[in-house]
């Protein structure tokens, strides 16, 4: 994470430096110093770190899967909302309006209980793990957000661009693919990153339906150790971990925004 703070305007550089030092310096430092002062605490923490790390890898996995799935579906839904035929447009509009306004936790609970715990494919019983259900829940939410981002981006392209493609003999789909969507990518990256980072934070909700992720792991650990100071330190570790997951996304967003403001 080598930040080129020199490129950013002064105030942003300053605030991001403060933020970065809290996330990457203050929180880890607190954990390390506390562990050294009370070595019994440090010993417990070292023992539990691999368990917490295995939980955190689940958060990363869910984030990546949900954002990938949500983006793919969202772009498609966004374009469907702009289709000239009502039977394409209407289902997409209904989907987006329903799920855009649903809380993430509700969707995760819904997918957990709606989908079976295993599925039968050609006589074989395949497990349908809870984390996949959480992925679907978050993907549904992010797809609805991203559909709106895509729709907004396409509509923000001046109609003269469509006219120019028409004059050159582009079909509607060719115009979308070669001229309109490439311009949309630039415009919709910052809001897309917002969705991505809120999905990253939303993965912690999966602990509530029993997915073994970081929050779940921290709760397990604190129940097992039964020490107040350990519980506090464990959740500081959780915070620091989420920070390292979201900070790069937020950072990248800001940098892209700056670039587009300049260009």
């Amino acid at each position: 994470m080598s930040m080129t703070a020199t490129q950013a305007p002064k105030t942003t550089a300053k605030s991001s430096r403060v933020l970065r030092s809290i996330g990457f310096v203050a929180m880890p430092l607190l954990v390390v110093i506390w562990s050294l002062v009370d070595l019994t605490l440090g010993k417990e923490l070292v023992e539990w770190i691999p368990y917490l790390a295995s939980g955190f890898s689940m958060n990363i996995l869910i984030t990546i899967c949900a954002v990938t799935l949500g983006t793919t579906a969202g772009v498609l839904l966004g374009l469907m909302q702009l289709a000239p035929y009502w039977f394409v447009r209407l289902p997409a509009q209904i989907y987006v309006q329903i799920f855009r306004n649903a809380p993430a936790l509700v969707l995760i609970f819904a997918t957990t209980y709606i989908f079976p715990f295993e599925i039968v494919v050609a006589g074989n019983y395949l497990p349908f793990p809870d984390w996949v259900k959480a992925v679907i829940g978050l993907a549904i939410l992010s797809s609805a957000y991203i559909a709106e981002i895509t729709r907004g981006a396409v509509l923000s392209i001046p109609t003269t661009q469509w006219e120019a493609t028409k004059g050159l003999g582009f079909s509607r789909l060719q115009a979308l693919r070669y001229v309109i969507l490439p311009q949309c990518v630039r415009r919709s990256l910052p809001p897309w990153m917002n969705v991505a980072s809120s999905m990253a934070m939303g993965t912690s909700l999966a602990s509530l339906v029993g997915v073994h992720e970081l929050m779940h792991a921290a709760t397990d650990a604190s129940t097992a150790v039964r020490r107040l100071d350990f519980t506090i330190i464990a959740y500081v570790v959780v915070m620091a971990a989420f920070f390292t997951l979201c900070y790069p996304i937020a950072r990248l967003t800001r940098r892209l925004e700056q670039r587009f403001n300049a260009g």
Partner: peptide
């Protein structure tokens, strides 16, 4: 060719 040129900015 249009009044507003309409080049592709990207």
């Amino acid at each position: 060719v249009f009044q507003q040129y309409n080049l592709f900015p990207h």
